[in-house]
Design a protein around this nucleic acid. Sequence first.
DNA 1: GTATTTGCAAAAGCTTTGCTGCAAC
DNA 2: GTTGCAGCAAAGCTTTTGCAAATAC
Lengths: 147, 147
Amino acid sequence: MRLTSRRRALLKILEEADRHLDAAALLEVAQQQMEIDRATVYRTLELFKREGLIDELDLMHLRGEMHYYEVRTAKEHFHFACFGCGRVEEIATPLFEQLKQEVGREKGFTIQTARLEIGGYCAECATSASQRRDSESSAPMASPPET
Amino acid sequence: MRLTSRRRALLKILEEADRHLDAAALLEVAQQQMEIDRATVYRTLELFKREGLIDELDLMHLRGEMHYYEVRTAKEHFHFACFGCGRVEEIATPLFEQLKQEVGREKGFTIQTARLEIGGYCAECATSASQRRDSESSAPMASPPET
DNA sequence: GTATTTGCAAAAGCTTTGCTGCAAC
DNA sequence: GTTGCAGCAAAGCTTTTGCAAATAC
């Protein structure tokens, strides 16, 4: 694979992003620094995926059906997505590696990639959700506040 | 949620399918037994997902970007997808449950759903892939059988 | 000079939506 | 009567593709 200037730039953007980017977001950021076409972004993501440079995530489809990308690092981790506030947290535990090893050993699989995504409510959202449940159940919701 | 005849039929098809169906495949099977529209299938899948009756899978995008659905059962499991032959295997291990519990406990998350997907090569494909590697040097392509 | 990469525009998929009529309660 | 469901057709969005020009080696 040739690391052209465009490819280098796309990789850099993914590396330095403070959130997980989907193809459209990556394109938008990239276009702020250079002239680049959608097709190039998609082709490059496909290439990076094939080469194992990046991983593809869904983040439990929190915000739609699109896919998100992140640069693969030495530090194995997986993702928790909060259905309440939308936050995405990266989590690491030795159990994950252990699980993969067990599967590989017991089934004879050669594992190339593993994706674990957990969806639910973070501590804060779980609390406010149960508070809402307590008042909502009898009285109907008032109309939402004006903006 | 009202369990209409269409919804019941769709659920039954998903339950009895011998493979993982995507929306188009589900529509096709359903249309063999009744008149039903795409929109109904998509709306119903969305509903089932919300209600927690089904889980949505990617199967590591083995056959494209579409999503697959399966009825949620008491028996927790996850999926292994072979990039070589396209087989999808369901796997269960106590470590998976243990991992989820650890995450919930340590982070205070209320976990609603967890999806673990592993991609790689099954024992047979790993063998033939390494044989191929000895002669050529091109990576095997996944071209799974259509059902 | 040959092979790869890119832009452009169009097409292809998959999914959603507005609207209308129908069915259930 | 009111509410929810389903069909139809069209639109929406994301992603892919063919082809010609540009770039790299």
